[in-house]
Nucleic acid binder design. Structure first.
Lengths: 149, 149
DNA sequence: TGTTATTATGTGCATATGCACGTTTATACG
DNA sequence: CGTATAAACGTGCATATGCACATAATAACA
C-alpha cells in the first residue's frame, strides 16, 4: 500500500461549490429585503467607482464576459445601470445612474449587516483567514487563459 | 474613527463565488474529456455507494431538491442513473446503472488527475488546509433550515 | 487602399441555482 | 372512516454560468 500522501485529497471543487451555495444563501437572506442578488451587488459595487466597458468589468469580476452581459439586464431594467456608447463603436460603457448610486449606498448597508452577521457566526478571525486563503488560491489559480495564442 | 476591527471584512461571498468559478473551470478542463460536469460527477459518486431517494441525495449534496431534480436529467438521458419507484408511491429511488458504475470508475480516474493537478498547482498542504477551512465553515454555517417549524 | 487579424460584443444552447406554488400520497387523529 | 397535516416530488420563473459560434468595427500591414 502506498503512503497516504500519494492519494488525492477529497474533492476541493465539490466542497467549494457546496459552501458557495450556502454562503450565497446566507448573504441573500439579507439582500432579499431590498430585492437584489449577491452577484448583482458585486456589479453595482464595481461600477460605483467608475464607468467601465463590459470586458473591463468582466475581467475585474473574473467572470465570463457573456455571463455578465446577461447579469446586467435586471440592473438595466431597474434603472440602476446604463449602457452608453463607448470610446469606439465596438465598446459599450457601463455607467451607474444616480438612482443606481443611491441604491448601491442602501445595498451596501444591507451587505454590511450580512457580512457582520457572517463574522459573528463564524468568528471574525476565521473569516479573515478564509478570505486570505481564497485570495491566495485565486492568485495561484490563474484563469485558463485562452489556450496559448 | 473607530478601530479597524469594527469594520466588516471584504465580501467573503464574492470571493467564494469567484474562486468557485475558477475552480470549477479547472476541474472541468479535465472532466470535459469524458463529457461530464463537476456537479454531475458528485452525483455519480454519491450514488455509487447506494441507491437513495431524491431528498436523501439532495441532503447529502446539500443542494436544493429542485436543483437536483433537473441535474439528474442528463445523467438519466445518458443511461447512468435510473429513477425507480421507491418504498412508497411518493418516493423515487435513484439508482446507478451498471453502465453508470463503469462510467463512474472512469470518471474517477479523470477526477483524480484533476485533483492531483490542483494539488500540484496550489501545493498539497495548502489544499489540505483549504479543504479543512471549507469543511469547518460548512459545519458552522448551517442551512437556513425552513424558518423555525 | 484592400485584405487580414484583432477587439468587443451578442446569441443559442445546456446546465446550475433556488424560490413559490401546485400535486400526490401517507400519516395522524378525532 | 373522513379530514387535516405532513412528506415527497414536479414545474414555472428568474437568474448564474460558460462554451461555441456569429457579427461588427478597428487595427495592422502588404
Amino acid at each position: 500500500m502506498l503512503p497516504a500522501d500519494c492519494d488525492p485529497l477529497p474533492c476541493t471543487g465539490a466542497r467549494l461549490r457546496k459552501l458557495t451555495r450556502r454562503m450565497t444563501s446566507f448573504y441573500e437572506q439579507h439582500l432579499r429585503t431590498i430585492g437584489i442578488r449577491l452577484s448583482q451587488y458585486s456589479v453595482l459595487m464595481n461600477l460605483s467607482t467608475q464607468p467601465q466597458t463590459l470586458l473591463q468589468l468582466a475581467d475585474r469580476l473574473e467572470m465570463d464576459r457573456t455571463t455578465l452581459t446577461r447579469s446586467l439586464k435586471p440592473l438595466v431594467d431597474s434603472g440602476w445601470v446604463e449602457v452608453a456608447p463607448g470610446a469606439d463603436a465596438r465598446k459599450r460603457l457601463l455607467v451607474l445612474t444616480d438612482a443606481g448610486q443611491r441604491f448601491r449606498t442602501q445595498a451596501q448597508q444591507v451587505w454590511r449587516d450580512a457580512q457582520t452577521a457572517l463574522e459573528a457566526q463564524l468568528g471574525r478571525s476565521f473569516v479573515a483567514d478564509l478570505n486570505a486563503q481564497l485570495e491566495h488560491a485565486l492568485s495561484q489559480l490563474k484563469p485558463a487563459l485562452a489556450e496559448a495564442n
